[in-house]
C-alpha cells in the first residue's frame, strides 16, 4: 500500500481524530508565543483597572459603574449608541435588600451584582442581549439532549426496547454482518500482504 493510502486510512478512524485535532491545535498555540501581542486600549466594553474600586473602598467594587436610576447614566459604552439610547439608565438599580447588604459591608459587591435586584449588566441584557439569548439556547439544547438520553437510555429502557424493536433486530444483524465483513477484510488483507 502506498504511503498516502496509509495516511488516508489512518485519518478514516474516528478514534484518532480528536488526538490529531488536539495536536494541530497545540502546535498552532505554540506558534502563538511568537506572534507579537498588544492590547488595543480603546476597548468597546471597558473595565476599570483591577483593584481600583476596591482601593477606593466602594461597597459595589468591582462592579461600580456610577449613575442614578432613570436620572443620570452610568459609565457604560455601546458600539452603536444610536441603537441603545437609554443605556446606563438602570445599571445602578438596587432592591431594598441589596441596599441593606451594601450598607452592612464593603465586601459584597460580587454578591449584589450576581443577585436579582442588584446591579444590572447592560452589556449582557441590553446592548448585546441577542448573545445572551443564544448562550442560554446552547445550554437549553444540551439539557434537552442530555435529558432525552437519560430518559431513554437509562431510566425507561423497557419502553425504549419496545420502540426500537426493528432497529434492535437490525443491530444484531449488523453486528453479525460487521463480523463477517471483518473476516472478509482480514482474509483479503492477508492475501494482499502475501
Amino acid at each position: 500500500m502506498s504511503k498516502i493510502g496509509k495516511l488516508w486510512n489512518a485519518l478514516a478512524n474516528p478514534d484518532r481524530i480528536p488526538k490529531l485535532y488536539s495536536l494541530v491545535l497545540a502546535a498552532f498555540l505554540l506558534v502563538g508565543f511568537l506572534v507579537p501581542i498588544s492590547l488595543d486600549t480603546n476597548q468597546i466594553y471597558p473595565r476599570p483597572v483591577p483593584q481600583e474600586q476596591v482601593d477606593e473602598e466602594s461597597p459595589l467594587a468591582p462592579y461600580d459603574r456610577g449613575g442614578k436610576v432613570l436620572k443620570t447614566p452610568g459609565i457604560i459604552k455601546a458600539q452603536y449608541s444610536e441603537n441603545s439610547k437609554s443605556i446606563g439608565m438602570i445599571t445602578s438599580y438596587m432592591s431594598p435588600q441589596a441596599i441593606l447588604v451594601q450598607s452592612i459591608s464593603p465586601y459584597f459587591g460580587t454578591s449584589i451584582y450576581s443577585s436579582p435586584g442588584g446591579l444590572i449588566d447592560e452589556v449582557l441584557y441590553y446592548s448585546r442581549g441577542f448573545d445572551t439569548i443564544l448562550e442560554s439556547t446552547i445550554l437549553m439544547m444540551s439539557f434537552v439532549i442530555a435529558s432525552w438520553l437519560v430518559v431513554n437510555f437509562t431510566m425507561n429502557t423497557r419502553r425504549a426496547e419496545k420502540d426500537s424493536k426493528n432497529s434492535k433486530k437490525a443491530n444484531i444483524k449488523n453486528i453479525n454482518i460487521s463480523k463477517n465483513i471483518s473476516k472478509i477484510d482480514s482474509s483479503s488483507l492477508n492475501k494482499e500482504e502475501e
Binding site: 448573545d131 439544547m141 439532549i145 426500537s164
Partner: peptide, 25 residues
C-alpha cells in the same frame, strides 16, 4: 461573537441529532 455562538450551537445540536440512535458504531 454572535457567529461563534451560532456555530457552537450547531456543533452541540449535530451531536444531539445522532445521539438518539441505538447503533454502537
Amino acid at each position: 461573537f454572535n457567529i461563534t455562538l451560532f456555530i457552537a450551537l450547531i456543533g452541540i445540536v449535530n451531536v444531539g441529532i445522532v445521539s438518539a440512535v441505538k447503533q454502537v458504531d
